[in-house]
């Protein structure tokens, strides 16, 4: 048991796992580049559904996704054991070393825990989201679970008037939505990059543009993305904390 625990917490294992993930992702990037139609649906579906619908029929191109999950799982275990071992080792020394030195010593473990939360957050974002993509049509009623619905009341498209070189190109889009909950109803404006948060969901406005045809209005379609993502907040918040900790830790490490 102790041998397994030590193996799981080995820094060498950690290095080779991260390195293997890096290479796997590098290979995956090229699979995506040359098979965009295979991987595009993965952005808007659960990974398990995608695998049943597409991945299993193209195992040569999709096996790197399976490998990524396996490697990420082992990296998660390894990161947890490494960080836990280090904290268990440092905690009894906290009084002798003083707060500053102890903070510097413990910071890498906290960074690793943040990373662990990011991994878990990503995992839930991939396996447990609820998502509905609906093209925007005026006065259309979109029925959602739990007796709630959304209606598109109006839409507005703003185009560049200046500078002359950009004239006519799409600048901003907005729509007005009537959000009907079980008891309440409210009117809210939705713009690109300004999602609405309502009833535990986020509602985004996306523009589907045919490649390189930004000037041509006929090729653009507004899309409503209604989403419940249990992992996204964890990923972004923990990543931000991880960045803060690293920005503090690396200069301190040099001093100590």
């Amino acid at each position: 048991m102790k041998q397994i625990w030590n193996f799981c917490g080995d820094i060498k294992v950690n290095f080779w796992l991260i390195f293997a993930i890096s290479l796997n992702l590098a290979a995956g990037a090229y699979f995506i580049k040359f098979n965009p139609s295979l991987f595009k649906p993965l952005n808007h579906s659960l990974v398990q559904d995608w695998f049943i619908q597409y991945g299993q029929y193209h195992i040569g191109q999709s096996s790197w996704v399976v490998l990524l999950f396996i490697l990420a799982f082992f990296l998660g275990v390894n990161t947890f054991v490494c960080a836990a071992k280090r904290i268990a080792q440092l905690w009894p020394q906290r009084k002798q070393s003083g707060f500053r030195v102890f903070s510097v010593k413990i910071a890498p473990s906290l960074i690793h825990f943040c990373f662990l939360f990011i991994l878990v957050g990503h995992f839930f974002s991939l396996i447990a989201i609820y998502e509905q993509n609906v093209p925007v049509r005026l006065n259309q009623q979109i029925a959602l679970p739990e007796g709630i619905s959304i209606e598109v009341v109006s839409r507005e498209i703003e185009r560049y008037t200046a500078p002359a070189a950009f004239e006519g190109a799409l600048k901003q889009c907005s729509i007005v939505l009537e959000l009907q909950g079980p008891q309440t109803s409210e009117i809210r404006e939705l713009r690109v990059l300004h999602p609405i948060y309502w009833q535990g969901m986020s509602i985004h406005l996306d523009i589907i543009t045919k490649k390189h045809s930004q000037e041509n209005a006929a090729d653009q379609e507004l899309m409503l993305i209604i989403k419940k993502d249990p992992g996204v907040a964890v990923v972004i918040v923990c990543f931000a904390v991880l960045c803060l900790l690293m920005s503090w830790y690396f200069p301190q490490r040099k001093k100590t």
């Binding site: 992702l25 995956g28 990037a29 595009k40």
Partner: peptide
């Protein structure tokens, strides 16, 4: 990416390459 497309990470060449470099 989350604000604009509802996804913090796309399964696209650019995003996966960035993740690869970060891991490296």
């Amino acid at each position: 990416a989350y604000l604009g497309w509802s996804l913090p990470m796309h399964w696209s060449t650019k995003h996966i390459q960035s993740a690869s470099i970060w891991c490296y």
